[in-house]
């Protein structure tokens, strides 16, 4: 920046402007100001990070270390008892298996169907294209909560209530439109000239899909899949409505069951261990893929 400001002819300004000698003074002041801002940023980092720290630290505490009048900011007797308790609970293991099955199925189905749909709107002009785009967009805006009642009745009617399959189908409501929409952005970023060149060289339409476009949007597919994974893994309302048995539930449901069941009372280390285990797969994936995910989320907005 300073180098940019140096050439005098680059900044034609009135000679006796009162602020003419300000930049120099300012720079010194700015350095102190930067330290003040850095300190504020660190304070914010502590405030924002504390809840997560507290979850982890509680999970590693013993019950005795939790129930003290003055909180222990570092576990005196670090223990894995909370984790052991949760991991030895057959319901937790069932629910984890259910969460995995449901999430993985919903994401894979959405990616396959979504990729085709995204191809269509990114590469073709056809009658009804705008209508389809509009439908995909509006569906993402519909509050999922409102759909729980009809969804539950319809799946009940199809004898799919209280089944994993039913929940997988229901989860397509929010994973599929999102996948179409995000993949469309990734496919649109692949120059059309590549398809055309491949077709001139004798590729068929289908071959251009999986030989040219698919490898190029592979990172996009992964990012989209990861975000779909996060959405499905965290979903609570639909699962809570559709699944009735404890051994058919998902992990978010397990958390509430644990929190509200009198057996576990105020078992904070156990609860925080369950919370940690539930968020772990999501947090790890998110932090790795965040830049791609948020690029997809706000691509249009930043493009301005």
């Amino acid at each position: 920046m300073t180098r940019l400001a140096a050439p005098p002819e680059a900044m034609p300004r009135p000679k006796k402007h009162p602020s003419a000698d300000r930049p120099a003074r300012r720079r010194g002041g700015r350095r102190y100001a930067t330290w003040a801002w850095n300190a504020l940023a660190m304070l914010l980092a502590v405030v924002f990070g504390f809840p997560i720290y507290w979850m982890l630290i509680t999970a590693f505490k013993t019950s005795g270390d939790v129930t003290t009048i003055t909180p222990k900011f570092w576990p005196r007797h670090p223990s894995l008892r909370g984790f052991a308790e949760v991991l030895h609970d057959p319901i937790f293991l069932d629910d984890m298996r259910n969460s995995l099955t449901i999430t993985l199925s919903a994401v894979v189905i959405s990616i396959v169907i979504g990729f085709f749909g995204a191809m269509a709107i990114a590469r073709f002009r056809f009658l009804g294209r705008k209508v389809f785009i509009f439908a995909v967009l509006i569906v993402q805006m519909i509050p999922l909560l409102a759909l729980t009642i009809p969804m539950s009745l319809l799946l009940d009617h199809a004898h799919l209530k209280n089944t994993t399959t039913g929940v997988i189908i229901a989860y397509l409501v929010f994973t599929m439109p999102y996948t179409v929409w995000t993949l469309r952005t990734f496919i649109a970023n692949v120059p059309k000239e590549l398809d055309e060149a491949a077709m001139v060289d004798g590729c068929s339409r289908w071959q251009t899909f999986y030989k040219i476009i698919l490898p190029l949007v592979a990172p996009g597919l992964i990012a989209t899949g990861v975000y779909g994974w996060i959405l499905a893994w965290n979903e609570f309302v639909l699962a809570n409505t559709l699944l009735l048995d404890n051994n058919k539930a998902t992990l978010p449901m397990y958390l509430l069951y644990f929190q509200s069941s009198p057996v576990h009372g105020a078992d904070w280390p156990g609860l925080m261990a369950a919370a940690t285990l539930t968020s772990l797969p999501v947090v790890v994936l998110f932090v790795i893929f965040q830049s791609r995910i948020s690029a997809g989320l706000t691509a249009g907005a930043v493009k301005g």
Binding site: F48, G49, P51, I52, W54, M55, I230, W233, N234, F236, P252, L255, L256, Q259, L271, M272, A275, T278, S279, V282, V283, F286, V287, Q290
Partner: peptide, 12 residues
């Protein structure tokens, strides 16, 4: 913080 599910953050 962003990555923490809302169910978990509520419990925290």
């Amino acid at each position: 913080v962003w990555a923490v599910p809302s169910t978990v953050s509520t419990q925290i």
